[in-house]
Write a protein that binds this DNA or RNA. Structure first.
Lengths: 413, 413
DNA sequence: CTAATACGGTAAACTGTTTTAGCAATATTG
DNA sequence: CAATATTGCTAAAACAGTTTACCGTATTAG
């Protein structure tokens, strides 16, 4: 049974009703700590406006999913209150909080007891002000509208948020719109002491904001890409390996006329895939035609348009390597629309292995990129970097091919 | 030439060596500010451990970064430096920064000039410590793995991040795993002064953590849902209206045997849709069968399974109302797999209108939810709420139906 | 012509931590 | 047994801002 407390002022606070006029009410599923309040208790049941004026008769416990006792302003207590109550100095409390071994076991226990009892938790702004670290990292995203609704970023971000949480860090998310950069907000992130470091997702050689971090020696890691011009820290998936895996697969199935739908050649990892494609084609057929490489803009629509173009200029291709899954889906639709079967007539391989590609048929053979793990790794390294434990971060994560139905033996014709 | 200052204790600080024993060393590219330190100066060149004991003889300048003073810690300047340079008091500078109208135009201009010239930017932790607000909001997500990779959350989050940026607020993103709640991290968000308020995405009646915010009167808004038991602030899409729109459409097309694939009945907005469905069916055919309502778990797979079940128990249904697009896609695949045509045999309507539903055919008729706008609105209201400008936030955003190919006239049979 | 008010600015108190230098008391060493 | 080290803790100085109470002028009102 539930009640609602309206203190003479302030918002109502919800309570479990433990007892009313001596009659116990549902003692189970209730937090152990109980409290008595001289208060007004209007009931929630129907419209009984009945109010218990002198509420000494009711015993209540706050509804607190996690429940510890509480009233609204816990009369903000600070480190001095704790020190006073524990009979030690402020410095001692600080050292207990920060696990400084100079404090004896006995003192530590005593102080921790008081901290518990008073429900003290140190103010982060104050800690940051006098300490060295903010324990906050930023994730920077390019200025694409709805960038976050992209599963590619979502997967990376999931890894970032999860690992950061585990390591006691908070993540703030920012979009680098033109105005944002003009206002130097990305520099302010450091200069106004918002963060210890930044993770840059979705950037490529064209995004010069990264040089700003380098120049000022602020910790920044490029995630799933690298910067060609500057020696910026990075972690990314092994796109070269992925491309090799995809090409191996197609070549072993007998394909020779393999076309490629790429995107964003201003990105180093995109060029990695193109490079490998070129190398393998060179070795395979002794030459490459630029007509077999079309830009698909990383979108499904772009992939479809690219495929249309490809089919009109080189109708005899038997396989398609796509720079990401979205373009591969677009490509498959274009193929099917033109009466070609996948994989009987044309095989298709993608990149990313995005989750929940719902009911795409045939299932798309694709290079799995460990994006979640990459996000987690990036956080791990960035924190080490902010603590000056490591300096140069150049790390690459292995990929693997996921075989589904969109690839098959080359057609006999 | 570089030197490193090791003060008798503490971390080394890197300096340019301007002069040593009277001999000038590289006077150019050096910041104007110089200082004399009675210190030990081990040289950086090779391993010369040579130490200048009485360092009165050396003149040093901090190494500061690009453009202006170069170096590791860019000689952090604070409000007092600005005040000194501008010949005013610290309070005046503070008031200029905060656009306090008490400062005259002339003084304001002078101070702003100095701020510009010195490249000063106020420390956020310090502002937070003495001020009232953190200018940071948190987005809380449920503990779903890869939650962020979901376009539903992505769309909401995009709106949140965009609007927050515009309003000068930062967004931190957190996942409420069980351990997170056990550690009271969601309460710490406020008590340790991390944030001014929280936005709760993806929560429903089962998530009792929301009561904690209510109990302590911390600003919290439930986004795209509401809490049945407590009077928590919320903004959500008008699911009732959406359901009406979907039902109107189907009924106008002549459908009478309409089934529903719902999900998460512990969510108030999900129940809204179910309610409307029930009402309309009651009015339409004078009764409803529980067999016509199946839980699809909000996933494509779930939608497919639910449809299988539906078809086996009630093969004569002619239309399907689905609680979200993913389930609708699953449903369509199940229908097609069983040899039924969409929309000729069965019409399908979804909810969400997720972007880039690439090449689903037939195109899915669906209720468009303004998720991006909802995220933006939530931020707007939350900020107003933290500044005590408004108290009760109960806002609902209109939906509209997007007609595509998955709906058609009821079949004649 | 005096009192009241507005204007523009300042000194000082305050926010809540961490860190450093120092100080007793005890433990170890020569 | 004196000299030195170690241990356990404290006082006080940062850290970088905001806010409040107050203080001369200058203007306006009575």
């Amino acid at each position: 049974m539930r009640g609602r407390i309206s203190r003479t002022s302030g918002y109502p606070i919800h309570f479990w009703l433990l007892e009313c006029f001596g009659a116990p009410v549902m003692p189970e599923d209730i937090d152990a700590r109980r409290s008595e309040y001289p208060i007004i208790v209007p009931m929630d049941d129907g419209q009984s406006d009945g109010v218990v004026e002198d509420a000494k008769c009711v015993t209540l416990a706050r509804i607190d999913a996690v429940g510890y006792p509480l009233g609204k302003p816990p009369a903000k207590i600070n480190i001095r209150d704790v020190a006073g109550q524990a009979g030690v100095s402020v410095a001692t409390v600080s050292m207990v909080i920060n696990q400084n071994p100079r404090i004896s076991r006995a003192t530590r226990a005593k102080v921790n007891g008081v901290i518990q009892q008073l429900g003290y938790s140190p103010s982060r702004p104050a800690q940051t002000l006098s300490g060295k670290y903010t324990q906050v990292l930023a994730v920077l995203l390019p200025a694409l509208r709805h960038a976050l609704a992209d599963t590619y970023f979502g997967e990376l971000l999931s890894g970032v948020v999860d690992r950061a949480g585990k390591l006691g860090h908070k993540i703030i998310v920012e979009q680098t719109k033109p105005q944002y950069l003009k206002d130097h907000k990305h520099i302010e992130l450091f200069e106004r002491k918002f963060v210890d470091g930044v993770l840059c997702l979705g950037f490529n050689d064209k995004h010069h904001l990264l040089a700003d971090f380098l120049a000022r020696q602020y910790p920044a890691i490029m995630v799933d890409n690298r910067y060609s011009e500057y020696k910026l820290d990075f972690v990314h998936c092994d796109y070269r390996q992925g491309a090799q895996q995809a090409m191996n697969c197609l070549i072993q199935l007998g394909h020779r006329k393999i076309a490629m739908i790429y995107a964003a050649p201003e990105s180093a990892t995109s060029r990695d895939v193109l490079d490998i494609y070129r190398q393998r084609m060179m070795a395979l057929v002794g030459g490459i035609s630029e007509k077999w490489m079309v830009d698909g803009m990383f979108t499904a629509e772009g992939g479809a348009i690219a495929t249309d173009k490809l089919l009109s200029e080189a109708p005899d291709i038997t396989a398609l390597l796509c720079g990401n899954d979205k373009m591969a889906i677009g490509a498959m639709h274009s193929l099917i629309r033109q009466g070609l079967r996948v994989p009987q007539d044309v095989s298709v391989v993608g990149f990313d292995d995005i989750q929940h590609l719902p009911f795409i048929s045939p299932g798309l053979t694709t290079v799995h990129l460990p994006l979640y793990e990459l996000g987690a790794l990036a956080v791990e390294r960035l924190i080490e970097r902010t603590h000056d434990k490591i300096s140069h971060i150049h790390e690459v994560l292995p990929t693997h091919l996921v075989l589904r139905e969109s690839t098959g033996m080359v057609r006999q014709s």
